[in-house]
Structure formats: C-alpha cells, structure tokens
Amino acid sequence: MMNQKNTQLSLQGMTLEAILNDLVAAYGWEEMGRRIDIRCFTHDPSIKSSLTFLRKTPWARAKVEELYLQPRGAG
C-alpha cells in the first residue's frame, strides 16, 4: 500500500477532474460505483456532481486516487 507522500507524488500534476475522466473511461460509472460505493457514482452520476462531492469529502477522494493508481484490470 502506498503511503500518502508517494500517492501525492504519483498524482502530481493531475487534476481531480482528469483522474475522474480517466476512471470513467476505463471502468464506466457502474463499475466505479461497485468498486467505490458512493452515491455520486451510483445514482444519476456525472462528472460535475462527483467533483463537488469528492472535493468536500477527503476519504472518498482518497479512494478515487487509490483506484486511479491501481493497474487497470486490478482490484
């Protein structure tokens, strides 16, 4: 498991919106909602609503960043 400093270095230069767009392209909303059970992914999902929630909710943002750093197809 990566520590917080390594995670920050790995995500340096990435915006939350870019991370979210990449994840949606890779997994789709349904799979993201299965992997991270948060309402903004499972009920009428959109980039805008997800960004609003994730910017206010550090634990959820950390889960999204962790998913982004996993090799695609893992998990």
Rank of each mutant, 00 (worst) to 15 (best):
D37M: 07
P71I: 03
T15L: 10
L20P: 06
F53P: 00
N21L: 13
A60C: 07
E31N: 11
Q4R: 15
A74T: 11
H43C: 09
T15Q: 04
L54D: 07
L9M: 14
W29Q: 08
T7R: 15
A60Y: 08
A26Y: 04
V24M: 11
D44M: 01
S10F: 13
R34P: 00
L51W: 01
P45G: 06
M1K: 08
R61A: 10
V24T: 11
N3S: 08
E65W: 01
R39A: 09
E31K: 15
E31D: 11
L11R: 13
L9D: 10
L51H: 00
Q12W: 05
G13T: 10
M32A: 07
A18F: 02
V64M: 12
F41I: 02
S50L: 00
W29T: 10
S46H: 00
P71K: 12
I47L: 14
R39D: 07
G73N: 03
D37F: 07
C40P: 02
K48C: 02
A26T: 10
M2E: 12
Q8V: 08
T52L: 12
I36A: 13
R35W: 04
K5E: 14
V64W: 04
G13A: 09
G73R: 06
P58D: 11
R35V: 04
I47P: 02
R39H: 04
N3A: 09
I19S: 06
L54F: 07
P71G: 07
Q4F: 10
H43P: 03
D22H: 10
R61E: 14
I19V: 15
M32W: 06
S10V: 09
K48Y: 06
I36R: 12
L69F: 07
V64K: 04
I19D: 03
M14A: 06
N21M: 13
E65M: 03
S46A: 00
R39W: 02
D37G: 11
W59I: 10
S46L: 00
G75W: 13
L51V: 01
M2R: 15
L54T: 05
I47W: 02
Q4K: 15
I36V: 14
T15F: 08
S50Y: 01
L16R: 12
T42R: 15
S10A: 15
P71A: 14
A18M: 13
R61Y: 04
R34V: 05
N6F: 08
M32N: 10
A62R: 15
Y27A: 09
A74M: 12
L20M: 11
P58I: 00
I36M: 13
V24W: 09
P71M: 10
I38P: 08
N21I: 13
S49R: 14
M2A: 14
Y27T: 00
M32F: 02
K48V: 05
Y68M: 04
Q12Y: 12
E30S: 12
K48H: 11
A26P: 04
L69G: 10
K56R: 14
Q8W: 06
A26W: 05
G13H: 08
N21S: 10
T15A: 10
M2Q: 13
I47F: 05
K56T: 01
L54A: 07
I47E: 02
R55A: 05
L23S: 11
L69E: 03
I19P: 05
R72W: 05
P71W: 06
F53V: 12
P45W: 10
D22A: 15
L20G: 00
F41E: 01
V24H: 09
